[in-house]
Each structure stands twice: as C-alpha cells, then as structure tokens.
C-alpha cells in the first residue's frame, strides 16, 4: 500500500474520534440513568428505559 503511514493515521483517527465520543456518551447516559432511578422511584416505574436503549 502506498503512503501507508498517512492512510493508517487517518483511519486510526477516523475510528478513534467517533468511538471516543460514543463511549463517553454511553458512560454518561448510564450514570445519569442510574442516578435518576435512585432519586426518583416513580421514574423507575414508568421511566425512560428500564429496558430501552443502550447508548
């Protein structure tokens, strides 16, 4: 493959940047959901996703 270092660096960034954002959002959403469920038992009953939606 020609220009391998440039291509490899681009693809590494192209995967790492979205993946880092996705991971951060996933962790933040999980934390928020757990804290909300601990605070508001009513929300747990009818809540926004006891089952639904991982990030």
């Amino acid at each position: 493959m020609t220009h391998l270092p440039y291509v490899a660096a681009s693809y590494a960034l192209g995967v790492a940047v979205p993946a880092a954002f996705a991971l951060a959002a996933f962790l933040r959403l999980g934390l928020a959901r757990r804290r909300l469920a601990a605070l508001d038992p009513r929300a747990r009953a009818r809540g926004p996703g006891k089952t639904g939606g991982a990030a």
Binding site: A25, R28, A32, L36, G53
Partner: peptide
C-alpha cells in the same frame, strides 16, 4: 441523541 438524553436526565436530577 445519547448526549442530549443524558443532559435531560441530568437536568431532572
């Protein structure tokens, strides 16, 4: 979408 959901929940918290 995931970040906005988290933000809404955080505001409610």
């Amino acid at each position: 979408l995931a970040r906005t959901r988290a933000a809404v929940m955080e505001r409610r918290i």
